[in-house]
Nucleic acid binder design. Sequence first.
DNA 1: GTCCTAGATTAGACAGAATCTAAATACGGT
DNA 2: ACCGTATTTAGATTCTGTCTAATCTAGGAC
Lengths: 146, 146
Amino acid sequence: MDTESIRESLETTGLRFTPQRHCVMAFLMEYPGHPTAAEIFEAVNRLDPRLSRATTYNNLRDLVQAGLVREVAVEGRAARFDAKGVRHHHFICDRCGNVEDVEWYEVPKPALSSLGKRTLRECELIVRGLCTKCAPAKGRDGVSAV
Amino acid sequence: MDTESIRESLETTGLRFTPQRHCVMAFLMEYPGHPTAAEIFEAVNRLDPRLSRATTYNNLRDLVQAGLVREVAVEGRAARFDAKGVRHHHFICDRCGNVEDVEWYEVPKPALSSLGKRTLRECELIVRGLCTKCAPAKGRDGVSAV
DNA sequence: GTCCTAGATTAGACAGAATCTAAATACGGT
DNA sequence: ACCGTATTTAGATTCTGTCTAATCTAGGAC
């Protein structure tokens, strides 16, 4: 999207601005869903065939570490990524593993007493179930049709 | 622990009772932490050297699917498992990836309207930060010492 | 504009985690 | 005891992600 704002984000986190980082970051900002690293590589490599797989993974790691990108681990599947824009929770489909956004709302944090000497950084909600594609069609009584 | 109760749990979910499943399930019920599949395999394989890696993974998958075991995905690391006993949330250490229990408390579910046609199964809280081992020692002013 | 250097990129080898395959085995109902 | 099917097994395989060592480049200094 906006090249200059990406440049600024990178610079404030101490990362150099490179065409490759711009490419990865811009893709994540435009892409509506939560792509895997492999999907991101495929996309950015199509735009610039010289952009390598290692660079894609390196940049994703750096961007996550810099706090510009969020990584979502999914049981038994590749991790998903999204650019941190508006805050939101995540929905993970039990069947296909797709990750979708859930509108943000405040969630109570655990009592400090229950954390002991642990440090709390963030508190994240994972909603699970079946996504629109995987949810079974409902009969008139609401029982799943198959 | 109690062999018969494990047999019953398996039977009610349609899984056959086998020494291997008992072994995996008993280990998870006794073990205090959240072992990875590799750690589980190492442990049960030590008890019965003929118990294979594939069986360990197969059984973990089946037990998770049957709802007897919970799987926790961790970014960039192997998944962790625990037998579903008392309800609890999970704490994941940013640095070492260890998974620990956080005392259970009710978390508000997202509004049905925001879920659309998606089906909601469960709502899970992931607390992130540094565990006791990884948390830096605090100076008198609370600033991290290293 | 040129130089310099720490940081970034690259291709391909490598490693770790989990699954697949096809043959052998054993659970548990009859 | 028998049978059908679920389960187990060893090892190969796939998938995800990291590492290596050589090359290149962003961007500050001059």
